[in-house]
């Protein structure tokens, strides 16, 4: 059973220091929540480069290829259409649709890729919102969340208090 430990900090430096020392301790999946972009958060959390761009590129290329094949098969091969006496298979005329399908597939891949990778779809409600005070993360609060094994939650909470957290909450049974 996983639990989520939340701690609120008043200063950016204290938040980053706490994240750094919890990361050194290990055993917890850390995340930071703040109303504005935090400089240095990537490095403190040890985030790897996102895989989303690669997924989008692959999806875009697949979209472009299938857009071209769709046109070639329908009007160039299976049922050749004479449009203004151009050859049925006219690459120049196929480019706009090819481009649009590439863009469409790439955009859908971003949308569904982010839903799956970042929001953990089909989960519809993130456990951080169990804590009422967490709303300050969109106003003026700097929050650290740590996903840990249930039995470690108390230890991490004590550690967060020691590192200077203004308030600490535990969300049990956060899956």
């Amino acid at each position: 059973m996983k639990a989520l430990v939340l701690g609120e900090f008043g200063e950016q430096a204290a938040l980053l220091d706490a994240a750094r020392s919890l990361r050194a301790r290990g055993g917890a999946r850390l995340d930071l929540h703040s109303p504005y972009p935090l400089e240095g958060a990537d490095e403190v959390l040890g985030l790897k480069p996102s895989t989303v761009p690669l997924v989008v590129l692959v999806a875009g290329v697949i979209g472009a290829i299938s857009g071209y094949l769709l046109q070639w098969y329908t009007v160039g091969y299976d049922w050749p259409l004479n449009v203004g006496n151009r050859p049925p298979h006219s690459p120049a005329a196929f480019i706009p649709v090819t481009f649009e399908l590439g863009v469409l597939f790439a955009a859908l891949a971003i949308f569904f890729g982010l839903l799956a990778a970042w929001f953990g779809f089909p989960r519809v409600h993130h456990p951080v919102f169990e804590v009422e005070a967490f709303r300050s993360a969109t106003i003026d609060g700097l929050w650290l969340s740590a996903e840990v094994e249930g039995k470690d939650a108390e230890g991490i909470a004590a550690e967060l208090r020691r590192l200077g957290a203004r308030q600490v909450s535990i969300v049990p049974e956060a899956t």
Binding site: A92, A93, P96
Partner: peptide, 12 residues
């Protein structure tokens, strides 16, 4: 470049 080419090619 493509817009110029395609429009001229298709208008003929």
């Amino acid at each position: 470049a493509f817009s110029q080419f395609m429009l001229i090619w298709i208008a003929n």
